[in-house]
Design a protein around this nucleic acid. Sequence first.
RNA 1: GCCCGCGUGGUGAAAUGGUAGACACAUGAGACUUAAAAUCUCCCGGCCGUAUGGCCGUGCCGGUUCGAGUCCGGCCGCGGGCACCA
Length: 898
Amino acid sequence: MTLDLAPCMGVIRAELRRSLMSRYEPKSIEQKWQAVWDEAGVFTARHDPARPKYYVLEMFPYPSGRIHMGHVRNYTMGDVVARYKAAQGFSVLHPMGWDAFGMPAENAAMERGGHPKDWTYGNIEVMRDQMKPLGLSIDWSREFATCDPEYYGKQQAMFIDMMAAGLVYRKAAVVNWDPVDMTVLANEQVIDGKGWRSNAPVERRELTQWFFKISDYSGELLDALDGLTNWPEKVRLMQANWIGQSRGLQFAFTTHNAPEGFDRLDVYTTRPDTLMGASFAAISPDHPLAKHLERHDPTVAAFLAECRKGGTTAEAMETAEKIGLDTGINVLHPFDNNWQLPVYIANFVLMDYGTGAIFGCPAHDQRDFEFATKYDLPIQPVFVAEGAIDAHLTEAYIPMKSERVQYIRGFAGHDVQTGEEAVAAAIEACEARGVGRGVTNYRLRDWGISRQRYWGCPIPVIHCDACGVVPEKKENLPVELPYDVTFDIPGNPLDRHPTWRNCSCPACGAPARRETDTMDTFMDSSWYYARFTAPDAITPTDMAEADYWMNVDQYIGGIEHAILHLLYSRFFARAMYVTGHLPQKAIEPFNALFTQGMVTHEIYQTRDDKGRPVYHLPEDVTTIAVADRKVVVLGDVPVPEEDEISDVNAWIQGLSDEGLLVEVIPSAKMSKSKKNVVDPMNIIEAFGADTARWFVMSDSPPERDVEWTAAGAEATFKHLSRVWALCSRIGDMPADHQGVGDDDLARATAKTVDEVTRAIESFAFNKAIAALYGFTNTLSKANASTAIMKHAIRTLAQLMQPMTPHMAESIWAYQGGEGLCARAAWPVADPALLIDETVTLPIQINGKRRAEISVPADMPASEVEKRALADEAVVKFLAGAPVKKIIVVPGRIINVVI
RNA sequence: GCCCGCGUGGUGAAAUGGUAGACACAUGAGACUUAAAAUCUCCCGGCCGUAUGGCCGUGCCGGUUCGAGUCCGGCCGCGGGCACCA
């Protein structure tokens, strides 16, 4: 392990201080306790039917090579929960593994040579070595990587079962095609519409790909969101929007002038009420009709080629200029055979949604409006604002669907009605007239899992000339990746492997070809939570173990996974149930979800002579104070004496001109390219794991981003040193010391237990820590009797244990705690000590705070009212004005209205 | 472009619709010290005032309410996701 020395001056100062302070030595105590825990096997998950279980899981990391502060925060959060639940008496499962397949390993092989497998396993070694010093309560005996053949072989077995269950199929789908490198690109490899290596404009090209029928579950995945009450509301909303249920009308236009076989054009609309405002029909460039025309008409072919430029992302599609081509084909309006609409091919119509064909109503859709304006198509309003008159539109009129509007070209329902009512009435009217039918559609598309890449789980099927596509026999699993591959040319090395592709057909035995596509890495992460319940089982899961441990009681990870990973996992759990790999209760695998924020850090930036930003490492900049200003500079700028500078601004301008003045950008996501990454290993080396753990849990609420500051880490270390000294002081107290304020300290202890417990339960770790700061201050000022003081410090150790487990064990042992602090039962507050006898109530007059009174907690409101009105300050403020109303909120506030 | 979220002192933040700024960081002042470091104490949103206190203040504009950081509507700014990054 390499160590970058001195990310800041603070580290050096801390080293110095530590050599003076012989007492708090995190390095030695942390190693000691980790060895003790290991030896005792305290974190080994035990299937114990006599005890309630608790399964806490953090999203497993990609083995990039080094842990970063985001990992420290994520895994500390899970560890706080795991340790807290263990103290509550639960049998806890807290496992760790590696999301180990994926592109970076292949990129590394291409850039630096070597093999993805060696690179990946090497990284795992390093990262495991970096995680272990954090003292996480992980059951390492269950560890696995998704690139282990033992893991992905089971994944292949399930793929075969799911194929048999009809959940898997093949179809053509578009990919980003790099015409120079002749390879498929991931979206992130397409930059401004160009290939990242070749810089050639990418095209959309169709390829036959493997799909999961997640769309069969659209309705169920949507409805089941209501049951996920311990998920963040925003995640449920994002998933609901992603699934995108809509109710609309599907009907067929009769075509005119169309090629043979295309006498009807099916369209889908969510606004059938605007049918009388239709001015054109449009089909997707991928529509069968468009493809048919392409083969016969060079103009259409050229237009479609234009449409296929650029990447496959929704963003690229939606921000591209909206273009269309009149096909010369017309369709007849379903209500008037004399009314013809032109059919366009339009690049904004998606083949995946609805029928791949629409009608455009420019008056009530902004995109259609722009299209109609561009191609000079009629714009006929269907409705106007209630009471308004039909007027020329300068933009589409799109009121809320719940708003009442006046229909002027409606054909169903009332003249004045809401959009919702009109849509329902229009569907009913159309069905009655035999024009189409009401259908429920979803935006959710089937899950494409084919990847034309090496470093992934091979899709276990074989292509036989006689039998077609045949699954591999289960006894031949795993279909293992060949090791002898090279990455010197773009493309999938499996495609050009001399022997791996050749095999015999499992059905007829004839020579056949192995599938060379590998699976999307989202597959790997869609069931790892289930595998952790029985990581050595010879089948993908063990029902008895899955039945005991599932579901995950608390899942923790980044908000960036709100949609894809979590939705795929929800689907996959259902697919596993259908194929007998999970019990039915596990079809929603995550009972509770918590999404944590990022760890951020300042960026230090100057600019080169062309004005482009140049980034600097924290250790390359210095903060200097000049007069009353603080400036950040590059390198060693001599600090001038006060009297040497007459004009501070001019001096700073001088620094700026020399390129030495550093601009500080706060709260940026840590990234290597911005040089603002803080290596946790430096922090652990300098201050210990407890400091790193405490700091990432303090200050910011866990769902929000947290800014890493060197000063904050140092301050945390100081605080822990204070606790250490306090423990030593209390330990030195004579056993018979009779102090003062015993009752106050006992109450403060009970209140802290209550506050910390409630804070941890509600994931407010920053508030738990604030309460612990407050209690430490109280305790360090207290002079109570020895027994009360000792009880207080032992309780403090227990409450700190989830955050700072090593220090907690040391204090616990020093103060005579029994056994390991990590195994001690969580403290319970005596309810009698939590009740205050008197309360202070603020008195507002017309909503502004003017006075306060102290009253017994149980005083009736009528009596409180009398006391408040009799208060000297209140009487003075009222000055005899009549009181209109008085509001007494018991235990809270009094508001006098005059 | 579409979906979702966030915005409070110099900084990170706290606040079941009920005293805005708990708890920390930084700065400043002081104690201890020959001195420094460490440690400890105090101040710390803005304006006015010696002070009791007063006025203003939670991105901006408006609304609901006895009472709004919190609820509603509209803006502005920042961040996450958008199906082949993980």
